[in-house]
């Protein structure tokens, strides 16, 4: 059959974007995959899929990019995509503090659901809104350093650093694949960083709700 020879790429990488609602995940993907930016766009429901072909070091890479909805309710659905992802881009919005605070929550999700050794990068998006900036570059960089992951500040609108960020992630995955550290193998930065995470962030908001049965009602 012709199918096997139809293969027009050297590697197939699976990427996933996560982060709070409206930080610009879909816009980053549209910029990277289609070089498009729309000021008005629809919120992502559940999970979306995009494809991008590009070349690094003479290797043709076919990237499957999964775009997730930011709302917590979709976590059950999106969890299974964490398991498939070789690389994850975690996005916050530099103009909204809570989206930065939640980065630790998203890292915990990756720890819970992602494969061991998944490559992660952190993106502070919307640098075009400099006057509304709430999170300094230094803060973003510091958090990334703590978790031993690469950090980029981007603008999907002005096309700043978007390709660079995706390329960095692809490079990391490629390096890992070429060094024989296939999926589900190799050393993990996330495991280590996750340990730090627990040490440094003892009171995650999500944990405060569940689990405990004290104060149960009488009916």
């Amino acid at each position: 059959m012709a199918r096997a020879t139809d293969k027009k790429y050297d590697h197939l990488f699976q990427l996933l974007l996560c982060g709070d609602s409206s930080v610009g995940k879909t816009c980053l993907i549209s910029r990277f995959a289609d070089n498009e930016f729309r000021h008005t766009h629809i919120n992502t429901i559940g999970i979306d899929f995009k494809l991008k072909l590009f070349t690094i070091r003479d290797k043709k890479i076919r990237m499957q990019i999964w775009d997730t909805a930011g709302q917590e309710r979709y976590e059950t659905l999106t969890a299974q995509y964490y398991r498939k992802a070789q690389g994850i881009i975690l996005v916050y919005d530099i103009t909204r503090e809570e989206t930065f605070r939640n980065v630790t929550k998203w890292l915990r999700n990756i720890e819970d659901h992602g494969v061991k050794g998944v490559k992660i990068i952190l993106i502070g998006n919307k640098v075009d809104l400099e006057s509304e900036r709430k999170i300094s570059t230094r803060h973003g960089q510091k958090l990334a350093n703590q978790h031993n992951i690469k950090f980029f500040e981007t603008s999907a609108w002005k096309d700043i650093n978007v390709t660079e960020a995706f390329t960095e992630l692809a490079e990391q995955i490629l390096a890992k694949v070429e060094s024989g550290g296939g999926r589900d193998r190799g050393s993990s930065s996330i495991r280590e960083s996750a340990i730090k995470l627990h040490e440094q962030q003892p009171t995650p908001a999500t944990k405060s709700h569940g689990g405990c049965c004290s104060g149960g009602s009488s009916n």
């Binding site: 609602s21 409206s22 729309r38 008005t40 766009h41 629809i42 919120n43 709302q71």
Partner: peptide, 12 residues
């Protein structure tokens, strides 16, 4: 906040 973020993004 979630509602407020979503409503302007519907049916552009």
């Amino acid at each position: 906040r979630q509602i407020h973020i979503d409503v302007p993004r519907m049916n552009p």
